[in-house]
Design a protein around this nucleic acid. Structure first.
Lengths: 211, 211, 211, 211
DNA sequence: GATGAATGAGAGTTCATTCAT
DNA sequence: CATGAATGAACTCTCATTCAT
């Protein structure tokens, strides 16, 4: 039995490496075989280790799958946040959000695929989804909605429901993610261009002479 | 074993009723327990029949699940097509497409939920998804893209990439569907209003005086 | 999934036979290999069936093991009660209780062994024993204690704590059971004789001329 | 690997302390979680040490569990023997045996519980119990039987089968032990009183004027 | 002396499918 | 047509043991 020290990040370097290795293997299997095909046996096989090792390093399959999602969110935030903060206008931040997000999912297609499998597939003991809509909205819609609202407050952005607009942008990005996940060779850039055009126009205030 | 006469629609009335009953039960279980929780035993239990009946009326679990998807597409088309065809302008048809689609998913939430579970969960023997991106695009993006292109040809709609625009509209609708599936109490109408505003503006030709 | 109809004893004849067969196999394995060695695989093997059959006929391993205990108690009661009721005096009933009980455990040694394994081995999810001391006392000590008390009320038996005396008799019988379980060739009759002498003397009222 | 020097008590003081510590932890876990719940991981956790330490100090799990039993027997003998030898009559020795034994199990309930778990649970590679009935009889019945026989030879005790009487007394004590193990709050003294009365009367020679 | 890491076998359970009745 | 019974494979998880450090 491994000492339960999750709360205090006291994991040794070597243990952290093993966990990374197992998470990576899980990502590959999830992307290849889907949620239903991602058995511990298969993940262990892909990682070149014995099945028991996974149980040793993770409390259970659920914890492993959750880490697949969490680690991806962390990576995404680490990449996107600096890009957004570097922008010097509300419109620039919206553009940075969309661009960096699309770029991230373009360069992490298999991780995205794996994450989608887990988010859609993982359920709790009560058969209810482990990742609820609220979870997802809080993690991905909320920051974007606040970004939009700040732009409205400063007068840089137009008049619209910021929460719904944020949902729309997220839906467009998630749609692109799903497409990218299903077709590894898909070129996202045309979609990205038109999407940027669509939303940058939608969030801007109407031009002075408009009716 | 039952004679395989699916291609020539020679199913008796009573057999068709049994299939409907089973498909409906499958929808309920899929919506409640997800793809992973939808065992034949549970579906049979929900339908109030024995497990063997399902095997008798369907070639296997896969065929049953496919029918869940197919029957929903048929229902959707049957409801949407007349609405779209009743419109007398390209813009009206776009509006009818979006409105009728959102209305359909609002009134068929559990079916939609079930379908999403199958589309995301079902895989073939080769581990590849049973419903590919191409399948989905052909069924849902293609008609919409052609509708848009026809509007562009007649000069009623503006200049944009019709295929990508169709994908964007689909992504927004699918996003709404996912939200509706996850939150049964969600009111879709505000989302629908803003979505209509977004896309009707996007597909219209620029106003005469615009730069 | 089998229909859950345990409460309304609506099990078919063939199902009841299978359950008996599985319980019997479980008894044999428990007697041979002990609680820890009684895996479902081994029980199924002994019964000449597949492992899944057990899961089909019993809700789980626990239910099977409980049935091993319950069926033995039922058999024991069915054999002992008529013998006890046939006696026409309190002393005769005490004698009948002890004699019939010892006789029962003599002729059901392997079942007794199996039951002891389950009672000592089976634990609940909370690690606490599934069969508590109270369970056992209620099932085996209580009827005997009441029998003794009735004899005291009618003046046929002497003055002693009926509950403790009942426990003592039970302990002696259980001790004999344990010995019989561990040594299949052990002759119980000398032990039975001396035990009868011990307790019949102990429960009788003191002779008239005693100090 | 550690040199196997168990036969020649050449263990260092510190090693002996470690073994005691581990045995004590095993007793606690056995008493709490039973034989099946007493994994090495749990025992190590209770002792505050790593799992490997146990493997280092004991040849295997079996040896550790045997020590739990053996150490308890040693403790019991060390407490009971002086008490028995201090008595100056056969009847006094029988009384001292019963009283000191009941007292010992009253003050060592958790150890007793743990020992019972091991005696009932531990099996050898051949599936046969590690502690046979003969073992138990030799260790606990034999000395008592000899004590009784000596009393008969000296004319102090009555006429009965000493071996069976010794078994009966043991069964009563073991019954009390089992009750005490299962109910930590049970008051043993009423049981002890009546048990003493029962057996002291049973082993005494009949009074002169009895028929 | 002691540790954490890894193994590999075996546990109970679930499930789609097959088949005799 | 429909059923209940049975199979056998695959699943997650646990655990005693081994071993390099």
């Amino acid at each position: 039995m491994r000492p339960e020290n999750e709360s205090i990040g006291q994991r040794s370097f070597i243990e952290e490496a093993r966990r990374r290795q197992i998470i990576d293997a899980a990502v590959e299997v999830l992307a290849d075989a889907g949620f239903g095909g991602a058995s511990l046996a298969r993940i262990a096989d892909r990682a070149g280790i014995s099945k028991g090792v996974i149980s040793y390093h993770f409390a259970g399959k659920d914890e492993l799958l959750r880490q697949v999602v969490i680690s991806l969110y962390e990576n995404g935030a680490a990449m996107m946040v600096p890009r957004i903060e570097a922008a010097d206008s509300a419109l620039g931040r919206v553009r940075a959000y969309i661009e960096s997000n699309l770029e991230f999912l373009d360069t992490h297609r298999r991780h995205i695929t794996a994450m989608i499998e887990v988010v859609f597939g993982l359920r709790g003991a009560d058969d209810r989804p482990a990742f609820t809509a609220e979870d997802g909205d809080n993690a991905s819609v909320l920051p974007l909605a606040e970004l939009l609202r700040a732009g409205q407050d400063s007068g840089e952005l137009g008049d619209f429901d910021a929460w719904i607009m944020a949902q729309q942008i997220r839906d467009s990005i998630d749609g692109a993610a799903t497409r990218a996940a299903r077709d590894p060779d898909l070129d996202l850039s045309p979609y990205a261009d038109q999407m940027l055009a669509l939303y940058l126009r939608a969030v801007q205030p109407p031009p002075p002479g408009a009716s």
